[in-house]
Design a protein around this nucleic acid. Structure first.
Lengths: 232, 232
DNA sequence: CGTCCATTTGAGGTGGATCAACCCTAGTGG
DNA sequence: CCACTAGGGTTGATCCACCTCAAATGGACG
């Protein structure tokens, strides 16, 4: 489990170097790599492929170029808690220490950009702007985790699903429609529910006209206000 | 909610200045304040007193000198999720941004040491060691939150209570005994359970000889191995 | 010694889990 | 182009872990 099982330069990679970020303001990763002149490499993973395991050495920090990633923890009997979904532009695998605290897998075919963690650490050691940015990114993850603890500890199934839909709507809606990359089981493992409970909640919202389907994973929110009301 | 309702220098305070930390290695806060020469102030809160509210400006960063603190989020109908308990030596209220994401209250009579957040920010802007330390502290909180999401999303009531006991044993046991500062309701709100379920789990562990009571909050773990087995 | 909470314990209810079909659709191969 | 298949999704029936409501007990403190 502790061995690095791939060599990013071996398969389907591309040296990117200094990149003009696609989203100059919001692209935190590009802001750093561009600023410090780090070399970034692109790498692709197929659906359900492991990117790194829990408790593996944190050799790289990643940014999703396209696709989607889940990070999760497992109990010994297989129960799984997904901590976060990472979509295009998101950074994941950033650790202050040397070990990944969650495992990461591609949800669908995914391309990532990656840099060595030690090179970021080194940059942070000479540039306080970089150090500040790394802290802010970790703090952003902490904020999400704190919100998610409230959801997992205290919200009902319908409230959790409503929260999830509003989060995904905010993060990946295009033209009022969202194309979910993940299956019902992933959603359940993110929300601390079973896939059946997620499906029932979505069906109920559909029956109430709050959302529309075009295929199980293509969802249109028809009434965000009522969804907000369902979310505690 | 957004107004700062106390003046730390007004009541029962004491200017501490550069402190020789009681725990030279583990005292992260002292390491910073001592290193940079920041002025720390001591302040005391009575049991159940609010230290700061959710979404208040983060004017200070705190370290527990004595006592215990809970940080939590509320839903509009009063449901509460406690994110963490902070015991002697722990830092809390550290934010990368300008706002506190959780509220904080004293669980029992508590004394804290505090420094202005902006002074820490300033120190981090000139000293990369300080910046590194602040990042590491936030990353430590994130690690705890990630572990706690797994607990809240996927563990059974007995597993949660076992995890809680092992955590408190590690953090506050003296001579094999722990004196819990918090009530059953606080434990429940930390574990995503009701106070009755917490009580029943503790009674069951007592009946099995895994722990001993001397008063409801004085607990001795008699068999850590069996407790570990109960914790997934 | 009495009061006030915190805690424990009991009885019963329920939201979500589990177990089990069934359905839909995208992909595959003929 | 269509039949077949497999995996994901939906829906139904039942179960049970935990919640809710209620009452008794206990311990700390005046």
């Amino acid at each position: 489990m502790l061995t690095q099982t791939f060599n990013p330069q071996a398969i389907n990679t591309q040296i990117v170097g200094k990149i003009a970020p696609a989203h100059p303001v919001s692209d935190q990763f590009g802001a750093i790599t561009g600023h410090v002149g780090l070399v970034a490499i692109e790498f692709s993973y197929r659906k359900d492929e492991e990117i790194y395991g829990e408790d593996e050495p944190a050799e790289y920090v990643y940014q999703v170029v396209s696709g989607a990633v889940r990070t999760y923890k497992l109990l010994s009997d297989g129960r799984r808690q997904i901590g976060a979904f990472h979509l295009a532009g998101d950074v994941f695998g950033l650790e202050s220490g040397a070990i990944h605290r969650l495992a990461a897998e591609a949800i669908i075919d995914t391309t990532v950009r990656l840099v060595k963690r030690v090179s970021l650490e080194k940059a942070a050691g000479t540039d306080v702007q970089v150090a500040r940015k790394l802290w802010a990114m970790t703090a952003g993850e902490l904020r999400h985790a704190e919100d998610h603890m409230l959801l997992l500890g205290r919200k009902t199934a319908m409230e959790r699903v409503a929260t999830f839909l509003l989060e995904m709507d905010r993060r990946l809606a295009v033209a009022g429609m969202m194309a979910l990359p993940m299956c019902r089981r992933d959603i359940g493992d993110y929300l601390g529910l079973t896939l059946e409970t997620v499906s029932r909640a979505l069906s109920q919202l559909h029956a109430q006209g709050i959302l529309g389907f075009s295929g199980a994973r293509q969802i249109v929110l028809r009434n965000r206000q009522r969804l907000h009301n369902l979310d505690a």
